[in-house]
Write a protein that binds this DNA or RNA. Structure first.
Length: 413
RNA sequence: GUGGCUGUAGCUCAAUUGGUUAGAGCUCUAGUUUGUGGAACUAGCGGUUGCCGGUUCAAGUCCGGUCAGUCACCCCA
């Protein structure tokens, strides 16, 4: 009988320990910087009523929401992003939440999309939102937040594109394209990719009159931030964001329907990954969800895309492949209790310690440590026990020292 | 959701126009070395060629389906 080898589902991935060390390291940077900026942690359920999720993102996106009937025949769905679930929280718990409410979430989201480069069906978003503030300073803080996070991860070249839905709508209506605004904006969004001619061809194909297209292009080229957006931009120098890292881009649109004010999109300028972060102001979403009429703004990072770019650009920080610091070698039954005592004492000193479970040749135990990337091995045999000391071997330099427990702890910390 | 390309050992790849028992390097395991690892040498494990079906005397090779990967579009993080 042949054995069936299981497969991982399309667009889903397994992460082995060395990769998890990197992922956890990056995740910790997010937590650290979010909290530095005064955001509070929040989690929401994986599953929501489908009705909570659907109809919030636009028609195209609704097709990508995973929905199914649960055992109780409820129509449910996996969360598609973190914005709608937190907006739901605002609706339900409005009496328990002090405004302005600043929260962050680092959670999985699911999209039933066809996978390709930088696109998965299960991926992590790192989101931060501010509820209950209509101030441009709240929006401006996100540019500073993005700057700090990407700097801390180690990116040197990236750009935060800034635009405003209001500026865009203004351009559209001045051009007399009000009734086709969504389809027109959709094409304009591709300017970077296909250029002015490409966008023009698409608009002509969509039966937009030539004269209006030219008029629109002219307005886009001349567009300036409105007064709200200007106030936002004026905050950035004080928040310590250098000019090279952001720009006003009147052709940047963003897909989701719920944005109402300033919008952001972030690109790593080396490499060819799509946007690694996006967001903006969505003042109407919470009331749409049946909640109070609260203004809101926020951004979400694509965690997995960042990891991909880090690997692509070889920006990997020098991380050990394990968090284990030391391996206590096993010499067999007669040394077992001493070895276990040492293991336990090291752990109590907050030193990540693993014990080699089966007695084996020392050479094999060294080989195990070095292939796992464990930097030290503790040797506790006859000679050491006689002297009440421990031999510690540095796997990298191959040096060995005979130390007392206190000296050992000191040299490891 | 639409279309293209791909799928042979853990990894990278071989295998004449379909033709014996599908090979190699690296990795891995064991030994040389039962208290000293990354080198060297020796030996070994490892595959119903992603899966299912079809054509054929004969399929890794051709055809169909399916699963997975990848790229473009769509859309997005």
């Amino acid at each position: 009988m042949s054995k069936q080898i299981p497969q991982t589902l399309k667009g889903f991935r397994d992460f082995l320990p060395p990769e998890m060390v990197l992922r956890n390291y990056i995740k910790n940077i997010f937590v650290e910087v979010f909290e530095q900026f005064g955001y509070q942690p929040l989690e929401t359920p994986t599953l929501e009523y489908a009705s909570t999720l659907l109809g919030k993102y636009g028609e195209d996106a609704d097709r990508l929401v995973y929905t199914f009937n649960d055992r109780g025949d409820r129509k449910v769905g996996l969360r598609y992003d973190l914005t709608v679930p937190v907006s739901k929280v605002l609706s339900i718990y409005q009496n328990d939440i002090q405004l302005p409410f600043k929260q962050y979430q680092i959670q999985l989201v699911w999209r039933a999309d066809k996978p390709q480069k930088g696109r998965y069906r299960e991926f992590i978003q790192c989101e931060a939102d501010t509820f209950g503030s209509s101030s441009p300073t709240s929006d401006a803080e996100y540019v500073a937040l993005i700057y700090q996070i990407l700097k801390k991860i180690g990116f040197s070249k990236f750009i935060v594109k800034i635009n405003s839905r209001q500026v865009l709508f203004e351009l559209i209506s001045k051009s007399g394209l009000e009734k086709d605004k969504f389809t027109v904006l959709q094409s304009v969004d591709k300017l970077d990719k296909i250029g002015w001619d490409g966008v023009k061809n698409e608009l002509v194909f969509k039966s937009i009159p030539n004269s209006k297209i030219d008029q629109l292009f002219e307005y886009i080229k001349q567009a300036q931030p409105d007064s709200y957006l200007q106030q936002l931009l004026d905050c950035l120098p004080s928040l310590g964001v250098p000019k090279d890292y952001y720009q006003f881009d009147s052709s940047m649109v963003r897909g989701l329907d719920y944005y109402t004010g300033p919008i952001f999109e972030v690109y790593i300028t080396q490499g060819n990954m799509g946007a690694v972060c996006g967001g903006g102001r969505f003042d109407k979403l919470i009331s749409q969800l049946g909640g109070p009429d609260i203004p809101a703004t926020g951004i979400a990072f694509g965690f997995d895309r960042l990891i991909d770019v880090i690997k692509q650009l070889n920006l990997l920080p020098q991380l050990p492949s394990t968090t284990t610091k030391i391996l206590v070698a096993n010499f067999g039954q007669e040394y077992l209790s001493e070895s276990l005592k040492l293991t336990s004492s090291l752990r109590q000193q907050n030193i990540n310690t693993t014990f080699y479970p089966d007695p084996d040749k020392l050479g094999k135990q060294f080989k195990y440590a070095s292939s796992m990337g464990i930097p030290y091995v503790a040797i506790l045999g006859d000679e050491e026990i006689k002297q009440n000391k421990i031999t510690i071997k540095n796997m990298d330099t191959r040096d060995q020292q005979l130390l007392s427990f206190e000296e050992l702890v000191k040299s490891l910390s």
